[in-house]
């Protein structure tokens, strides 16, 4: 298989129970731009109700009946995708150009992403596309405060869609935006149905889009925020201890990074703390390179670095975002600094 462009992008729609994943998926599938889309729906429970809503894509739909996409289903998901690809190659299903997986509302998306990124067969045929997370404007703040799964779903998102925003007042929507940004400051936020969603923009097909490029247009300042651990001001306080311990740490490096030192540091960090690193995103200025390098990772697994054709803004500094659990930001910052200095000598 050739470069990434030959691989079939796999987009993920995740979000907590009742957050509007299926509604979003139906909208995507109704869009002419997504005509050649295969769908895998992961159901939780005995009856695949959501599947009934997706009859239009039934020939390409694989329904996973045995539970959530967490560990127990990883092998089944891998098998389902291999089977789907095999049918595509044999002409038994239309030659789909992309795949969308809708996860269960209770799923931690990380195992699913592991399967896509690490399965030795799948990664020769598929590549991780965009992770879109739906957050319900009515119940989302409560879900984030009470359920670690909801926080993880937001933390891994490339894009976040706030749903049911027409059912609450503006202050509630703004509060939810702030709550989401605390766990993922780099993911662009869309509001549905207030905003007409441009699905081709929502699913850009590249997991490698830079965090700053994603949020801001050319010339706009990048998102840079070290987000505190505390629960949303004036909002509900996290009752799930794990969720309360999650924070986003943003680091900026002014000078070009030494790739070797950075790689040594990050592999060591992920070795020691990968289970507590929910997400790594970065746009990096590497010494000896004129174009930016983009990195993405989830827990212990890093996506191969990619480069952008040009810098998305006038800002030429490196920006690294780590969404972590129980890891102190000052220690991360100090450690990175010490490692980078090793390469300067």
């Amino acid at each position: 298989m050739g470069p990434d462009g030959d691989l079939i992008p796999v987009h993920i729609i995740t979000g907590f129970l009742g957050s509007g994943k299926t509604t979003l998926l139906r909208g995507v599938l109704a869009s002419p731009a997504f005509a050649n889309t295969a769908v895998v729906v992961n159901e939780f429970g005995a009856v695949a109700l959501d599947h009934l809503l997706l009859q239009r894509v039934d020939p390409d739909t694989v329904v996973l009946q045995t539970g959530c996409v967490c560990c127990t289903l990883r092998s089944e998901l891998g098998a389902a995708l291999r089977d789907l690809y095999d049918k595509r190659e044999r002409g038994r299903v239309p030659p789909f150009d992309r795949l969308v997986i809708e996860t269960t509302g209770l799923a931690d998306p990380a195992p699913l992403l592991f399967t896509l990124m690490a399965d030795p067969v799948l990664r020769y045929h598929f590549r991780l596309g965009t992770i879109v997370t739906t957050v319900d404007a009515v119940n989302g703040a409560r879900h984030l405060a009470q359920h670690l799964e909801s926080v993880k779903q937001v933390a891994v998102a490339d894009q976040v869609v706030l749903t049911k925003t027409d059912l609450v007042d503006r202050a509630s929507v703004d509060g939810l935006r702030a709550a989401v940004a605390r766990y993922n400051p780099t993911a662009p936020l869309f509001e549905a149905p207030a905003e007409s969603l441009a699905f081709d923009r929502l699913f850009r097909g590249e997991a490698s889009d830079s965090p700053d490029q994603a949020r801001a247009g050319p010339g706009s300042p990048p998102a840079r925020a070290r987000v505190p651990v505390a629960a949303p001001d004036g909002g509900e306080h996290a009752t799930d201890g794990h969720a309360r311990d999650i924070s986003a740490v943003s680091l900026t490096v002014d000078l070009p990074l030494d790739w070797t030192a950075f790689g040594v540091w990050l592999t060591m960090l992920l070795h020691a703390h990968g289970e507590n690193v929910l997400r790594v995103k970065g746009i990096l200025r590497i010494r000896g390179m004129s174009i930016p390098v983009v990195i993405h990772g989830i827990h212990h697994l890093m996506h191969p670095p990619t480069s952008l054709p040009r810098w998305p803004t006038a800002d030429r500094r490196s920006h690294l975002v780590l969404i972590v659990r129980k890891l102190p930001a000052p220690a991360i910052e100090r450690s990175l600094r010490a490692f980078l200095r090793l390469a300067v000598r």
Partner: peptide
Amino acid sequence: LVARLEQEDGLEGEPRRGT
């Protein structure tokens, strides 16, 4: 470990957190 590396270098680092 970090203290040892810093001691070896004796220089102030460059990365900083955003605001």
